[in-house]
Computed example of a mutant assay.
Amino acid sequence: MEFCPTCGNMLQFELPNMGKSSRFFCPTCPYVSYLENRVKIKRKQHLVKKELEPIISDDDMKNAAQTEATCPNCAFGKAAFIQIQLRSADEPATTFYKCMNENCRQNWRED
């Protein structure tokens, strides 16, 4: 979004037409800004993904209570769970589960 330096109104964009280059123009005053046909990239910056920290660590789940919940990954019938209030107080708590099957150890949650 560009604004006119003389009157402050939002500039409108006009596509190239009949040999004229594209431009920004002000609908209220005679200001016109022509655009270059080429885009120059000055520098490339590589994005690096940050490592996400888990909300519930394995140490938290070691001391957690156990319940009869079915794992969505392996259908095992026992899971450890912790309830945490993530949203506002009038919303229900979020329950985090961890499968107790030694081969699975899948984590899931229910809001």
Rank of each mutant, 00 (worst) to 15 (best):
Lys42Pro: 02
Glu36Thr: 09
Pro72Met: 05
Cys71Glu: 09
Leu11Met: 15
Arg105Asn: 10
Asn107Val: 04
Cys26Thr: 07
Gly8Ala: 10
Gly8Met: 01
Thr95Glu: 07
Leu35Ser: 03
Lys44Ser: 05
Ala93Cys: 00
Ala89Glu: 15
Tyr97Ile: 07
Glu68Ile: 07
Gln45Tyr: 10
Lys40Thr: 14
Cys71Thr: 08
Phe24Thr: 08
Ser22Asn: 11
Ile82Trp: 02
Arg105Cys: 05
Glu51Ser: 09
Phe13Pro: 05
Cys104Thr: 08
Glu51Ile: 13
Asp58Asn: 13
Gly8Val: 06
Phe96Ser: 07
Lys40Asn: 11
Asn17Ile: 13
Leu86Gly: 03
Ile84Asp: 02
Asn17Val: 12
Lys42Ser: 11
Phe76Ile: 06
Ala89Lys: 15
Ser22Leu: 01
Met61Trp: 04
Phe25Asn: 06
Gln83Arg: 13
Asn73Leu: 05
Cys7Gly: 07
Pro54Met: 01
Leu52Glu: 14
Arg38Thr: 10
Ala69Lys: 14
Phe25Lys: 08
Cys29Thr: 02
Cys104Ile: 01
Arg23Trp: 01
Lys98Ile: 02
Val39Arg: 12
Tyr97Ser: 07
Gln12Asp: 11
Asn101Tyr: 01
Thr67Leu: 02
Ile41Ser: 07
Tyr34Arg: 13
Glu2Ile: 10
Arg38Val: 10
Ala80Phe: 04
Gln85Trp: 00
Cys4Gly: 05
Phe81Ser: 05
Ser21Cys: 02
Tyr34Lys: 14
Ala80Thr: 08
Asn37Cys: 01
Ser21His: 08
Phe81Gln: 03
Ile56Trp: 02
Ala75Pro: 00
Pro54Asp: 12
Ala89Leu: 09
Leu15Arg: 14
Phe76Gln: 09
Ala64Pro: 09
Arg23Gly: 00
Arg43Val: 11
Asp59Lys: 15
Gln83Tyr: 01
Lys78Thr: 14
Cys26Asp: 04
Tyr31Thr: 10
Glu2Leu: 12
Gly77His: 12
Ile84Ser: 01
Cys4Val: 06
Gln106Thr: 11
Gly77Cys: 01
Asn101Trp: 06
Pro16Trp: 03
Tyr34Cys: 06
Thr6Asp: 13
Ser88Lys: 13
Lys50Met: 02
Thr94Glu: 09
Pro54Cys: 02
Arg105Pro: 00
Asp90Arg: 06
Arg87Tyr: 04
Gly19Trp: 08
Val32Ile: 15
Thr67Ile: 12
Pro27Ser: 12
Cys4Asn: 04
Arg105Gly: 08
Phe25Tyr: 15
Gln85Asn: 13
Asn37Val: 06
Cys99Trp: 04
Thr67Met: 06
Gln66Met: 12
Ser33Thr: 05
Asp58Arg: 13
Ala69His: 05
Ala75Val: 00
Gln106Ile: 00
Met18Val: 06
Leu52Ser: 11
Asp111Ala: 09
Phe76Val: 02
Cys71Phe: 11
Gln12Leu: 13
Asp59Asn: 14
Phe81Thr: 00
Gly19Arg: 10
Phe25Gln: 07
Val39Tyr: 01
Thr94Cys: 07
Asp60Met: 15
Val39Glu: 11
Glu51Thr: 14
Phe76Trp: 14
Asn17Trp: 03
